[in-house]
């Protein structure tokens, strides 16, 4: 009863907030393109224009700062590389996100084995300070009630909503083959606090788009090839339950790809990066990635594949 009352009260308050913030729904085109360069890049003698961060070097664990002759060209010669000693602290890493102050958010992800990535650390977000370049623990997400060695993964995806300074983090920690226990957390970065969550969802890659006229978080899961969406409120909270938008099933060379990442272009089209994923540690180099493009058909009100 108490829960139900709290929920009603919350909803009423939320609704008032929603009315008040109605204007904020008119979102500027560049509203989610706020990333800034960390100031430590220059301090470390790197040219920001030619530099980038990587967590995918097979021989170097952790985060790397690299300077390239031709930024954007993966085959271009790397002219300089640097690793702050603290960037190895969390083992092998995967996502890299920049905020408007140039802080970097990342999380551990096992690479081939868990020798350097103990399962107990897989639900921890790390932050690299924009000024000092020092990596430190940012937030430990609630850990699953049962750690199991069958599933070596924790945090898999991250995306940042600039308007509200909200970090969305997907984690599959604690999930088993027959029990889906993953979460998507919405984290107020400034308050360093979880403000909302979706449970029982093994979400992986995520993306944010406004193309349907609504601010939406799109995500795929490690369980099937579907892409879901959930509305985001003006405060960055989840609004309503996730709905299935479209699927990668029977598409591409494998026919059952899972979503590693979702990006959008200036037209609002979604590019879904699909890979094979079965909650094991098969080396990423063995996994072919396929890009699937989808466009919003306003007449039919559905996403259609751009072949």
């Amino acid at each position: 009863m108490k829960d139900s009352f709290s929920c009603s009260l919350l909803c009423a308050i939320f609704c008032l907030m929603f009315l008040a913030s109605c204007k904020e729904e008119e979102i500027e085109f560049s509203s989610n393109n706020c990333k800034a360069n960390p100031s430590f890049i220059q301090a470390m003698g790197f040219t920001p224009r030619n530099s980038f961060f990587s967590t995918s070097d097979e021989r170097t664990m952790g985060l790397l700062l690299l300077e390239s002759e031709q930024p954007g060209n993966p085959k271009a010669r790397i002219t300089k590389s640097l690793q702050h000693p603290s960037w190895r602290r969390a083992g092998w890493l995967a996502p890299i996100l920049l905020d408007e102050a140039g802080n970097i958010y990342t999380a551990p992800a096992p690479f081939i084995n868990i020798l350097d990535n103990p399962i107990a650390n897989n639900n921890t977000i790390y932050k690299i300070d924009s000024k000092t370049g020092l990596m430190d623990e940012f937030l430990r997400l609630p850990f699953a009630d049962s750690i199991n060695t069958d599933n070596p993964f924790g945090i898999i995806g991250m995306i940042y909503l600039c308007e509200t300074a909200t970090l969305y983090v997907s984690t599959v920690a604690g999930s088993r083959r027959y029990k889906e226990k993953g979460h998507i957390y919405a984290i107020d970065v400034k308050a360093k606090k979880i403000i909302d969550e979706i449970n029982h969802t093994d979400a992986m890659g995520m993306g944010i788009s406004y193309v349907t006229g609504q601010r939406k978080l799109y995500f795929g899961t490690g369980r099937n090839s579907a892409i879901y969406s959930v509305n985001l409120s003006a405060k960055g909270n989840f609004s309503g339950s996730p709905v299935e938008e479209f699927t990668l099933q029977d598409m591409g060379p494998r026919g059952d790809d899972k979503v590693r990442r979702i990006t959008t272009d200036q037209y609002g089209n979604l590019t879904v990066h699909g890979i094979e994923f079965n909650f094991n540690l098969i080396a990423p180099r063995e996994k072919q990635e396929t890009l699937y493009k989808f466009s919003w058909n306003a007449d039919e009100k559905k996403w259609v594949s751009l072949k």
Partner: peptide, 23 residues
């Protein structure tokens, strides 16, 4: 893994008529 934040398209949304259903 290189991360890029992509630009989002502007969207306007009608609201008031749906407020009851939203509640």
């Amino acid at each position: 893994m290189l991360t890029h934040l992509k630009r989002m398209k502007q969207g306007n949304r009608p609201f008031s008529v749906f407020s009851f259903f939203i509640i």
